[in-house]
Amino acid sequence: MISTDRAVPSYRLAPNYRPFVMPALIVVCAVIIFPWAFTVWMSANDWTLGQARTFVGAENYINLALDARFWESLWHTIYYTALAVILPLFLGTIAALIFDEQFPLRGFLRGVFVMPMMATPVAIALVWTMMFHPQLGILNYFLSLVGIEAQGWIYDQATVIPSLVIVEVWQWTPLVMLIVLGGLAAVPREPYESAEIDGANGWQKFRYLTLPMIGPFLMIAVIIRTIDALKSFDIIYAMTQGGPGTASETINIYLYNVAFSYYNIGYASAMAIIFFILIVILSFVLLIVRQCTVWSQAGDGK
């Protein structure tokens, strides 16, 4: 039918895979590359929707550098991200060590544990908002049971970011757990047996055997968590919209407000670009750190 003698070697040498990629390439260009090019162009214009557009070159970027609210939102973003990376990392690793063991109902409990990160963030955020309520919220009731005074949670400028992070931790600790669990599955048994013969205790085994071996997986968790926490929008927007005042306004929320509340498209575009560059730089730094940890561990192994 189709087979001709000449066709055989040519397919064998170079099967044509490019057509498979073409549709995706077109879509990526249309919904990813084009928007980016357009954003770069917009960022060089002074343009509020419904008004005249004028070319201003780098002015938006200069204004951004002088914008106190932007710097404040950057600080909020860093604060939020640091907490939202470290806490899930710590708790997720402990959870992974537990779920790596054998015990009854293990599969079922793991399934339950994974549910928060699949649940719809907005729906989750609404229920947390009710739980954080200063007078009627269940959290302050629990605090009162153990004799701690009522907190303002997301309604207090001082506690709003840590409170939001509680939700983030609740939702994303399972992802860290899954990643680390994947790492633990690949850990060989023999070193532990020899360590036991040498009389190592549980902590020593964890510190000198487990931790170095799951190091690369922890770094992956850090990278993914960092990117996600920087981009976090749904929970913050649904719960506080950046408030009270601007106390929980991260760059992403500020960006949203500039673009879709003030319709200041040019300025928002400049901010989007700076924000994206920040994310890229940070991920590359983390990737490099990851390379280093992998190397140093290879060195330690000798």
Binding site: V31, F38, L255, V280, S283
Partner: peptide, 19 residues
Amino acid sequence: VIMIARMTPGLSFLIPMFL
């Protein structure tokens, strides 16, 4: 390219696409 698409905040796509 795919990796970068995953890293980009959804909002940055929204401004140009909205217009």
